[in-house]
Design a protein around this nucleic acid. Sequence first.
RNA 1: GGGCCUAUAGCUCAGCCUGGUUAGAGCGCUUCCCUGAUAAGGAAGAGGUCGAUGGUUCAAGUCCAUCUAGGCUCACCA
Length: 1040
Amino acid sequence: MTYREVPAKIDLPEMEHEILKLWSQQDIFKKSLDKSADGPLWVFYEGPPTANGMPGTHHVEARVFKDVFPRYRTMKGFNVPRKAGWDCHGLPVELAVEKELGFTGKQDIEKYGIAQFNDKCRESVVRHVDAFEEMTSRMGYWVDTNQAYWTMDSSYVDSVWWSLKKIFDKGLLVQDHRVSPYCPRCGTGLSDHELAQGYEDVVDASVYVRFPITSGALKDEFGALSLLIWTTTPWTLISNTAAAVNGTVNYVVAKTEDGELFVIAEALREKVLGEDSSVIKTFLGSTLEGTSYQRPFDWVEFPETDSPIHTVLLADFVTTEDGTGIVHEAPAFGAEDLALCKSYGLPVVNPVLPDGTFNQDIPEVGGVFFKTADARLVQLLGENGSLFRHLPYEHSYPHCWRCHTALIYYAQPSWYIRTTAIKDQLIAQNEKTNWYPETIKSGRFGDWLDNNVDWALSRNRYWGTPLPIWRCEDAHLTCVGSRRELAQLSSDASVEMDPHRPFVDDISFKCPECELQANRVPEVIDCWYDSGAMPFAQWGYPEKNADLFENRYPADFICEAIDQTRGWFYTLMAIGTLIFEESSYKNVLCLGHILDEDGRKMSKHLGNVLEPIALMDDHGADAVRWFMLVSGSPWQARRVGHGTIAEVVRKTLLTYWNTVAFQSLYARAGSWDPTTASLTNLTDLDRWAVAQATRLARDVDKALEDFDTQRAGRFIAEYVDDLSNWYVRRSRRRFWDAEHSALSTLHHCLKVVTQVMAPFTPFITERVWQDLFATSEVESVHLSYWPTWSDEEIDDTLRDQVELTRRIVELGRAARAASGVKTRQPLQRALVAAAGWGELPEGLQAQIRDEVNVITLESLAGTDELVDVAIKANFKSLGARFAKETPMIAKAIVAKDAREIVDQLRIGPVELEVEGTVITITLEDVVITEVPRAGWTVASVGGESLALDLALTPELIAQGVARDVTRLIQDARKTSGYDISDRISIVWETSNPDTQRAMNEHREQICSEVLATKWENASVENPVVSDEDLDLRISLIRSS
RNA sequence: GGGCCUAUAGCUCAGCCUGGUUAGAGCGCUUCCCUGAUAAGGAAGAGGUCGAUGGUUCAAGUCCAUCUAGGCUCACCA
């Protein structure tokens, strides 16, 4: 048995497509699940992507992490079912369809017909899910899309209804009239987590407006004077109902330079009216209560009432940080305003229609969009003398997260879940949750819970889970928990019916309480509720799959990007806690966002979106995956571009691949049978490579247990580099000879690294597994078990020794570079000074001699005449003992004769007098550096040195020539395209006597290295190789 | 405005938790070396006020405070 042939060059994307085919033909994903079926369950929940647009590279990010941990856990023997899911409902889908159909508002939808419109939404979802499935497959994300849950499935809706009924029965699902953010374009209220996504910085008109006082003590005292108010929403002035001041704040009557009188907060007088204004009278805000004034626009009619319309009210929320300290009240458009005006019994007037335009009967701005009316109103304020000042004001204002229309705060009836009632439970559940990174737990997410407000659940829309509440004419409410229940209540309904609008709207039944007819309320629910219900709704629980659900709650692992803090992470925890009194996840990985190469957010708007499939077909999915997992910190925002991903390919994937190709090449050339691999008769370097592989398996395991792919990836990359650029580099000759222990070692090491890399880069590792291991092991790397180890297999001493060896070699290279004597020229000896080098095993010392190309290594330390000693203070050990005295003592140590004190310290502790005090220091307190004296070429780093003896003998020169010649011929063989085992014939000539001599003396050595079977010194007509320095011309041909 | 994150070489980022002598890597640039696996590898050079200021400490890139800039996020206080 042999390896399959592994080409040196590889087209990664093409290879990946072949692997995809292999996986599907051999059904590897399913086999990996079957194989682990009896293992302990590790529960993963897939957060459903919203199927309202094409998948982007940011979707790849989260999906890579959702893939890597289940793959890893599966290799560790866990059973990790992976059910895909799609978020189907919601405004985003509706908007996409509206755009397609060219609609501009809800009227168009109603005209078109809800049934047809929802059909279009359903089609749109299916279309986008197809695109997601393609991307999911291409990137190697193993998730079961055949049995995906769809939030629009009837059984899913049943589950959602069931849960809503549970909440309703607890009295936590209620209708309330509240001022809440409302999108006039979409015609629906927004929940707080939707609101959070839509703040935009805008410049609004801010106006200071006169409210002339019409009665009260101040009027009697001063005659003409005005309240001065400030607002950034001039359009609300039409609806002005009252003015509010803080009763405990000082106010003044102030006179402007022009002699006009205003009431204003004392603290803001100078800022608003200027230094030249003067205070006439000071009093507490509470004395203003009841003062009546004249509103700026008297277009809206107020009902007859005894309540104090258009007077001053007292409110705690008024501050003196902005404006004038007098707030204009329009209760229909502000939560605090509404509460205040209600408490004074004031009526609520609202001249703004649900589409955001002013009622037609309003003069000047009837039919105008509320925000657009600002400019005209400011102009009118100027004309009627109300306007005191007009300033642009920049602030961030909420906009609809989908259509970017400015939101309006608008009083309207809406359904709420009283999450504030379970706030303490939510906080307790969060306490039990492991967040990665941890800062989210008490930071972003913790803050969110601390400031919890009731969940505005209802939407006045069409494509969503209908709110399953029926109301009768006497306003009794019935919450229905499934289609089955509905069918029991109404003969119009059936268990099989489509639970969407408009079909459910047509169902009515007799109110169980009063027998009057009950009809469904018109709202659908927030689609975030759908996705948050997935732990049970994906199974259709409790109608179906009760056992499945119960085993798989809560999840061990969920993962999404940071924007889900207020989204899915919240709704999952909130619904889980509401229904089951336990959060639905234990560990949550929260990723940073992907940015473009310039650090900007990717968006269609900016045109900087990387199309994921194109990206993967350019560089390979493995490269994209590795980037996501390892480059930078996953929980911070990261920049992604072609350059960064191409580097992954070069540095990591191809280095790994080349090592594999190397192993295959020589194993096949030597007809080596991998089933005979055995880790016996190993060299020191072999043992090192094996022990490091074991260490790798342990370290990667630990890192992945901590959800730290970055650390794990760095371990892998380091090991791949060690294996390729040290183990293989140093062992080449043994591979040429097809040495069993070397081939066995690399076979083993490649197996380990392939396995631990498999969750990261499933394609290339699968390909390697197929080529090198599948014939002697299980059929796929993804069906193999994670390597096991015992700690004693991990040899720290050997690791340290190899590290020292490599450091000394580096010194040798540096010394070579400094000397100008190239490495191919052998030198007689190198002198080494480095702690512990003498104890290096002979095998490792041979590595040094070979790399540095010297015949012997000698110790520099013993040869005093060649070496100077320098010492420095070891601050760490001194500082611990002498603290403040440290610098003084350090100075005293350095001032001593270095040679003398080192000699003494090598015998024992030394007493030192510093500033009259005698202290004792040991070897540990100094750092000794030995530096060769002049006349030697030396390199020295961190106290370790290597010096080269540059004396050349004719024999050494001849050896150098031989090595030059060998290299020239090898290069010629390669460029001529000879196979590594081809034998050749050589003809050469030179008129240089030194070259002549070297050729003759080293003939045997050269011939064996270059596999020459014939060797002739004769004139060369057409040299394949010629070298001017050596005055050498060679021709070679393949021997028969 | 509140909270969080980030700021280290031209670029991308380690190092900071647990303070210690001369702050690292990769990419890019220059010169050289090594090479019959390599699209690689190595050495040297150039490139740093470790965002700023103050503090703690014998000692600060590292700990603390304040500030600045950028990002994310929350918040329409009128």
